[in-house]
């Protein structure tokens, strides 16, 4: 169980996640999508969970362990993070890049062993990159590079997976593959938290939607209970939600016109 209590984060003196407003719990096997406008604090929240961003207040507990008390390696054994974008800066092969996900599990003075490489290969198969092992990461397409980073996070073998817009660079087929993969991983008992902008992908792929606006949780609900009102309140545009297939198991949300004048005041 991942438990976040009154998390507060400031960057350069600006409050990104407001104190006393950010508390939630996510169980094992649960997939939660973080939704909200640009700059609402979704990526900062993911960064604070895995230690990329320092928190100023509140607590993060995983199975009652305060993650702040852990070393960087121990924390990386709990949280695997896939950033919004990552530009490879050296000519590693895809396999070399993915096996680096095994770093938190290495003992001092040890290198990656045969098992680590096997786990890296299996991770590549799961993101549909089998056969890409010897390719150079700097020469991959945007989607291939994004899947390589997801494979590296899988190789990390952490119980909580934090994905920052995992489908943004992917074509519809590979977006589906990755979303199906998150369901598989949740089925294995992992906790998935992903920041997203695609409402439909979020509804169809997650159990729960957590809406963040201005650094606070605006709403937290099961995915299939989302309403037009909630979306309108969060994004400031009108929405239509359609139920397809005669039941409520498939919803399609269509954005409409801007509902109200945007507030540009600081």
């Amino acid at each position: 169980m991942l438990s976040v209590k009154n998390l507060a984060v400031s960057l350069s003196g600006r409050e990104i996640i407001l104190p006393e407003t950010m508390s939630f719990e996510i169980g094992r096997g649960e997939i939660a999508a973080l939704l909200g406008p640009n700059g609402s604090g979704k990526s900062t929240l993911l960064g604070a969970l895995c230690g990329l961003v320092k928190k100023q207040g509140g607590g993060i507990l995983y199975d009652s362990i305060d993650v702040e008390s852990l070393t960087a390696r121990e924390r990386a054994k709990i949280f695997a993070h896939v950033p919004q974008s990552e530009r490879p800066t050296s000519d590693y092969t895809v396999l070399e890049s993915v096996v680096m996900g095994r770093y938190p599990h290495l003992k001092s003075f040890d290198g990656y062993n045969r098992d680590d490489y096997e786990i890296a290969r299996e991770s590549l198969r799961r993101v549909d990159l089998a056969g890409f092992e010897e390719r150079i990461v700097t020469k991959l397409s945007g989607g291939e590079a994004a899947r390589t980073v997801i494979a590296r996070a899988l190789a990390q073998d952490s119980p909580v997976l934090l994905l920052d817009e995992p489908a943004a660079a992917l074509d519809p087929k590979h977006a589906r593959i990755i979303m199906d993969l998150t369901k598989e991983l949740a089925g294995e008992g992992r906790t998935i938290l992903m920041a997203m902008h695609d409402i439909n992908l979020a509804i169809s792929s997650s159990d729960r939607l957590i809406f963040i606006v201005g650094g606070s949780i605006a709403d937290d609900m099961p995915s299939l209970r989302v309403t037009e009102d909630v979306l309108e309140r969060v994004y400031g545009i009108s929405w239509e939600i359609w139920s397809t297939g005669g039941d409520a198991s498939k919803l399609v949300a269509i954005p409409g016109a801007v509902a109200q004048a945007e507030d540009h005041s600081p």
Partner: peptide, 20 residues
């Protein structure tokens, strides 16, 4: 001691997320 750390630092990944 720091062979794997040097790999991570040159890869473009944020090493902190990998436990570095």
């Amino acid at each position: 001691v720091y062979v794997q750390e040097l790999d991570i630092m040159t890869s473009g990944a944020d090493g902190r997320a990998l436990g570095l």
